[in-house]
Design a protein around this nucleic acid. Structure first.
Lengths: 336, 336
DNA sequence: CTGTTAGCGCGTTCAA
DNA sequence: TTGAACGCGCTAACAG
């Protein structure tokens, strides 16, 4: 009467079979007669039965849930587009499974190791790590605990031993920089992202390589975090030190947006006086004035791939140890 | 030897007490001697014991996890700032508890009821619903299942019977519109948000009320979704139909951003020719040109409050049925 | 204050 | 193909 949610026993009784048979029918085992199968299915539908996850976990020793670790945005608006893409990618990736997605937002000033401890405690079957920043503890804890995990974005430091999916950041920044070279820019600067993230490092590298190949100067570098404000400040520094700059590669669209603001306030026309190319194409680029030329970063696709890889690991599939690297491509705008 | 994670039995053995005592010590019951308490704590630390959630859930009939239901952004960049704020609010809100956060991203084109079914299946102890859109099924399912839930933003339709926390959208849009009135605008238009969201409706209402009180015309209305592109289109329509417009209240900053773009492309100066006020202040406003005058929407605070309210419900605290409404305030920019 | 005893709901042997 | 029995790790009565 006051029974709460229906249990497997209720289903079995309703279907006039034993609990084991009901269990087998529900979990798609093969040794079940068609009649029994049908009876169980009918009973399940009639009762609205849903397996109790806790009970199931207890015996299967799986939690049927995975963790998604994401960095807390430094400022609202900062990593937002990235965050949104990641969320969508993972959600898409687990659609159709009965996996629960447990969200772990890594707080900036928090006691280090909270997340590592959580991941090591057996509360989840695996993890997607979209945390771009350096996190020695996390990576170490991950290898120690043998928790199946896939990174979105090459892990900082030694990537060997970790599965990851990434966009080819070096190729992307080459694309961006080459565009500036091709349109005739002779002194091309860059506003970099944080150098404790692989994306920040790689995007600087592509810029440098392209300019070297073109035998152009590589002296105009301004470091920044991935914020619009940071980009504006960095661009100002760049213009002060190198007034003759005629092109800027910004390591993200958010940065580029700040760069455009500075250029406008200084009366430099874009792209006539200074051409600008960004990176990411996650929505910001379409809303700038002028519309930003940028490099598309397929975040949803990479995250989806990472999730698929994790599902593979969980199902014990043969593991392709090699990272999956997605190609970026240039998106036409008006800024270059 | 090959035992896997340590169990309560291991702890008990290590601490030389019974399992029950160990359990009591760990769960902070009172009837435990100081020595036993210390012994257990030492054993826990030594073994790195973490309670098995599944086993605990099975007996306590609680899952120690809550769901966060958020709408999938219609476009990247769209509801991003909102989403980020919500995530932070909830995360802050459950910090210090051992609650798991299960993320439920509501897909736009999905089979309706997926989320409702999930919430009704006993997989979580409660839910925060940040889904602004109309979702009859969800609200109905929620009342039917008696799952403790708190909405962020007044639920669409009949809000009675639902707990919610919200910013005072009507007051906010009054603030915005009054600002335009005060600076001398005589023909003030509005670009609305979707009229199937309470925020969209309320923000339109505040605009109308303010203009009526000021005895100014309320004929210049253009509806839109909450995207920048939508705002740009709506603003164009507004200018076409009412060329003499000298002020626009946009129901969100994203909309306002689109409005500014249209005004610029039509050669209208802001704020000299047309003054603009937005709503939300979630990061977008600071990056527009000119910097947007807007109304601050304390998303993190409301979401945190919603989470606190949910925790209260879960602990069986006396439930304040009345919604918590947060006051908005005007943020100075250059656009009005 | 402590230990003993019983399940929580489910998957999975093992015989039949 | 089916059912009976067991145990996953833990909390909560109940005696002591």
């Amino acid at each position: 009467m006051t029974s709460g949610p229906p249990t497997l026993d209720d289903v079995a009784r309703e279907a006039r079979v034993s609990r084991s048979t009901a269990s087998r029918a529900i979990n798609g085992a093969d040794r079940v007669s068609p009649e029994a199968q049908a009876a169980v299915e009918a009973a399940v539908a009639r009762l609205g039965f849903t397996p109790n996850r806790a009970a199931r976990s207890l015996v299967t020793r799986r939690t049927d849930s995975i963790a998604l670790v994401v960095p807390e945005p430094d400022t609202l608006m900062l990593t937002d587009p990235f965050l949104t893409g990641v969320l969508r990618g993972v959600t898409d990736g687990i659609a159709g499974t009965d996996l629960q997605l447990v969200l772990l937002l890594s707080r900036t000033g928090e006691a280090p190791g909270r997340i590592a401890r959580y991941l090591g405690s057996g509360h989840v079957d695996g993890a997607i790590i979209a945390s771009a920043h350096e996190r020695d503890q996390l990576e170490a804890a991950l290898t120690r605990s043998h928790l199946p995990a896939v990174f979105v974005g090459r892990p900082f430091g030694d990537a060997s031993g970790h599965h990851y999916v990434d966009v080819d950041n070096v190729a992307g920044s080459r694309l961006a920089t080459q565009r500036l070279v091709d349109r005739g820019c002779r002194h091309i600067g860059t506003v970099t992202g944080p150098q404790d993230m692989s994306a920040g490092i790689d995007r600087l590298r592509g810029w440098r390589e392209t300019l070297r190949a073109a035998e152009l100067p590589t002296d105009a570098i301004a470091h920044s975090d991935f914020t619009g404000t940071g980009g504006a400040t960095a661009a100002a520094a760049l213009l002060d030190q190198h007034p003759d700059i005629d092109g800027i590669f910004a390591a993200s669209d958010l940065l580029a947006e700040g760069v455009l603001r500075t250029l406008r306030s200084r009366g430099r026309r874009v792209p006539e006086d200074v051409a600008v190319v960004g990176f990411d194409d996650l929505g910001v680029a379409q809303h700038t004035t002028p519309r930003l030329t940028t490099v598309h970063n397929p975040v949803v696709a990479t995250t989806k791939a990472a999730t698929a890889a994790l599902l593979g690991l969980l199902s014990g599939a043969p593991i392709p140890a090699a990272p999956q690297i997605f190609p970026p491509y240039l998106v036409e705008g008006e800024s270059a």
